[in-house]
Every structure is written in structure tokens, then in C-alpha cells.
């Protein structure tokens, strides 16, 4: 059975049907792409999947569990993590603390333990530090652990955002335009990173991207969206050669 099963997902804002009967089924370990022109409803789908918006119709199942209409927090706990189109880091926290916020729900101690520095505080903080450093090392950010997140260069901020998302131990990772604003070298490096994350963490990844080189390079399957409706779906090479898709999005 698929890890993510989306059926007839729809949402309207006033008279506008931003997403109209969207269907997708993503297998575990898959690298799945979501493409389409600006305003097609891609980010809206991410917001629906993560509970920012409640769908007016349809069903979302993660690993056989119905998560339709659940809150953002519940969905994060259920196992969906995301990054944002415009980077959203905790600017005034250190790089290490950014990841430790991601570890929040899997490493607990009470408020009293934190204030009175009980043994569970030291134990848990030590475990969180180790885990966070492990994740930072994966993204080659361990040398900058003490930097403020806002002081990192753009490309590394994107990586930190992915590291923070992975810290929540998700089953499904949503990447919203990870290559936006990157130069070709950085994009190349990002492609390697995404591949590496998938293999190393056995992760399922759904990503939105406009960079066709990246999409063609790493996505195994694609959905193309236009005006909230699904235009095409299938193997990446088939979809990218579909005349409809070329007409609507890629340009002839």
C-alpha cells in the first residue's frame, strides 16, 4: 500500500477552486515531483497536506491513517515534515538550536525538570545535542553549529531547513522549491543532497520545483498541475514529453 494516498482533494477560496479533485499515490521511498505554472495550486496542496488549510473535500491518508482535517501539530506528529518556499528558519537561534527545536516532540522532559535542572534535563539535552550534531554533519553544517541561523549563506539555510524537518523524524518530507534562488552549482549539490537524504534516511520525498533539470534529474514520477486541476501524471520522462504539459507549462 502507498505511503501517501490522496483522493479527490479540493479546496475553494471564495469562488476560486484552488485545488480541484487532486489525486496522488506515493510509494514508500519514492521521489515524487509536483510541477506546474505559478498559481497552479502546488503550495496550496502542501498547505493542505500539512493541515495549514482544511480541505473542503477529499481524503488524505498517511501510512493507512486518515489525517484529513487534522491540525498542523497532529500531522507533524503523524510524520509529515516540510520546508518552505521562502526560507523560514528561527533566525535568532543557533544552527544547533534550530535542529533541536525539530527534535522537540521526540525528546521530552517536563518544564520543572528544565527549570530545576533535574537529571532528565541533562540526559535528554545530551541526547538531543548528539542527535542534532549527527543531522548537521549529514548536511556538512556541524562546523557552523554555533552560528546564528540568519548568518548562514542562502544555500546552507536551505540545507538547515531540511535538517530541521528531518529532525522531526518524518515518514514523508515535503520540499517546496528547494532550488529556488540557487545557482547551477548549488542546485547540483542540492540534487546530491536530496538523493542522499532519500537513501540514508529511507525517506519518501514530495517536492515542488520549477527547475526542470532538477526535476528530470531526481524525480521518478511527476504530477503536473494547472489551474488547480491535474494535467498529467506518471513517469517523469513520459510526463515531460506529454504535448499537453509542454503546451501548458514547459513551452513549445
Amino acid at each position: 500500500m502507498a505511503l501517501l494516498e490522496v483522493k479527490d482533494l479540493s479546496i475553494s477560496f471564495g469562488g476560486l477552486r484552488a485545488v480541484d479533485d487532486f489525486n496522488v499515490s506515493i510509494e514508500k521511498g519514492q521521489l515524487y515531483g509536483l510541477i506546474g505554472p505559478n498559481g497552479a495550486g502546488k503550495t496550496t496542496i502542501f498547505n493542505l497536506l500539512t493541515g495549514v488549510y482544511k480541505p473542503s473535500k477529499g481524503k488524505i491518508e498517511l501510512d493507512g491513517k486518515n489525517i484529513t482535517g487534522h491540525s498542523t501539530i497532529e500531522i507533524s506528529k503523524a510524520g509529515i515534515a516540510r520546508t518552505f518556499q521562502n526560507i523560514r528558519l528561527f533566525d535568532k537561534l543557533t544552527v544547533l538550536d534550530n535542529v533541536k527545536v525539530g527534535l522537540h516532540n521526540h525528546n521530552r522532559y517536563s518544564t520543572a525538570a528544565g527549570i530545576f535542572r533535574l537529571p532528565t534535563f541533562y540526559r535528554t539535552e545530551k541526547r538531543m545535542n548528539e542527535r542534532a550534531m549527527e543531522l548537521l554533519k549529514v548536511f556538512d553544517l556541524d562546523g557552523e553549529a554555533d552560528y546564528l541561523a540568519s548568518n548562514l549563506p542562502y544555500g546552507r539555510q536551505r540545507k538547515l531547513e531540511i535538517a530541521r524537518a528531518l529532525a522531526t523524524e518524518p515518514k514523508l518530507l515535503l520540499l517546496d522549491e528547494p532550488a529556488a534562488g540557487m545557482n547551477p552549482n548549488e542546485t547540483k549539490e542540492l540534487m546530491d543532497t536530496i538523493h542522499f537524504v532519500r537513501d540514508r534516511f529511507d525517506m519518501t520525498i514530495l517536492l515542488i520545483e520549477h527547475d526542470m533539470k532538477l526535476v528530470a534529474g531526481i524525480c521518478e514520477e511527476l504530477s503536473v498541475l494547472n489551474f488547480g486541476k491535474e494535467l498529467a501524471q506518471g513517469k517523469t520522462s513520459d510526463v515531460l514529453n506529454d504535448p499537453e504539459v509542454i503546451k501548458a507549462y514547459l513551452g513549445e
Binding site: 500539512t50 495549514v52 498542523t72 501539530i73 507533524s76 506528529k77 515534515a81 516540510r82 518552505f84 523560514r88 528558519l89 528561527f90 533566525d91 535568532k92 537561534l93 527545536v101 525539530g102 522537540h104 516532540n105 530541521r164 524537518a165 529532525a167 522531526t168
Partner: peptide, 11 residues
């Protein structure tokens, strides 16, 4: 620092 991001990691 960022309410939306904090919510997205389950805070």
C-alpha cells in the same frame, strides 16, 4: 522567530 515554522515542526 517564526510562528509558521514552529507549528510545522509540531510546536
Amino acid at each position: 522567530d517564526n510562528r509558521i515554522a514552529a507549528e510545522s515542526v509540531g510546536i
